[in-house]
Simulated scan of single mutants.
Amino acid sequence: MKVLQVITKGEVGGAQSHVLTLCRELTRQGVAVQVAIGGAEPHPPLANALEASHLAVHRVPALGNALNPVRVVRAAWALRGMVREQSPDLLHAHSAMAGVVARLAGALTRTPVIYTVHGFAFKAGHPWKRRTVAFAMEWLLAPLTRRMICVSDHERRLALVLPLPSRRVSVIHNGVEDVAVPGNSAASTAEAAPAIAMVARMAQPKRPDILLHALAQLRGALGYEVPATFFGGGPELAAHCALAHRLGLQAVRFTGDVDDVAAQLAQHAIFVLASDHEGLPISLIEAMRAGMAIVTSDLPGIRELLPEAAHARLVPPDPAAWAAALRQLIESPALRARMGAAARQRYEQHYTAQRMALAVRSVYAAATSRTH
Results as ranks from 00 to 15, higher is better:
99 G>M: 04
228 A>C: 15
6 V>Y: 07
306 L>Q: 05
119 G>S: 13
305 L>W: 01
248 G>M: 06
233 G>A: 06
304 E>G: 08
297 S>G: 10
139 W>G: 02
95 S>M: 08
211 L>E: 04
22 L>V: 08
145 T>N: 09
313 R>T: 09
112 P>L: 00
184 N>T: 13
295 V>P: 02
38 G>N: 05
197 A>V: 15
339 M>D: 00
206 K>I: 06
252 V>H: 05
207 R>E: 01
310 A>K: 13
233 G>Y: 05
186 A>F: 11
195 A>F: 02
296 T>Y: 03
54 H>K: 13
145 T>A: 07
16 Q>R: 08
70 V>S: 13
230 F>L: 08
345 Q>G: 09
246 R>A: 12
257 D>Y: 15
357 A>M: 04
275 S>M: 06
107 A>K: 13
260 D>A: 14
187 A>E: 06
47 A>R: 09
23 C>F: 01
188 S>L: 12
353 A>C: 08
213 H>N: 11
75 A>M: 07
104 L>S: 02
32 A>C: 11
198 M>Y: 03
74 R>C: 09
367 A>N: 07
224 Y>V: 10
21 T>V: 11
101 V>R: 03
238 A>R: 13
290 A>E: 00
66 A>H: 14
178 D>W: 14
281 P>C: 05
171 V>H: 07
118 H>P: 05
8 T>K: 02
181 V>G: 09
184 N>M: 05
263 A>Y: 08
81 G>V: 01
253 R>P: 04
189 T>S: 14
318 D>L: 11
232 G>P: 04
166 S>H: 14
184 N>D: 15
275 S>N: 09
225 E>C: 07
168 R>V: 02
328 Q>W: 01
167 R>P: 05
308 E>H: 15
293 A>W: 01
309 A>L: 11
84 R>D: 01
305 L>M: 12
74 R>L: 13
317 P>G: 03
102 A>Y: 06
365 A>F: 06
6 V>W: 00
307 P>Q: 09
30 G>D: 06
111 T>C: 11
269 A>G: 15
331 E>M: 12
103 R>V: 03
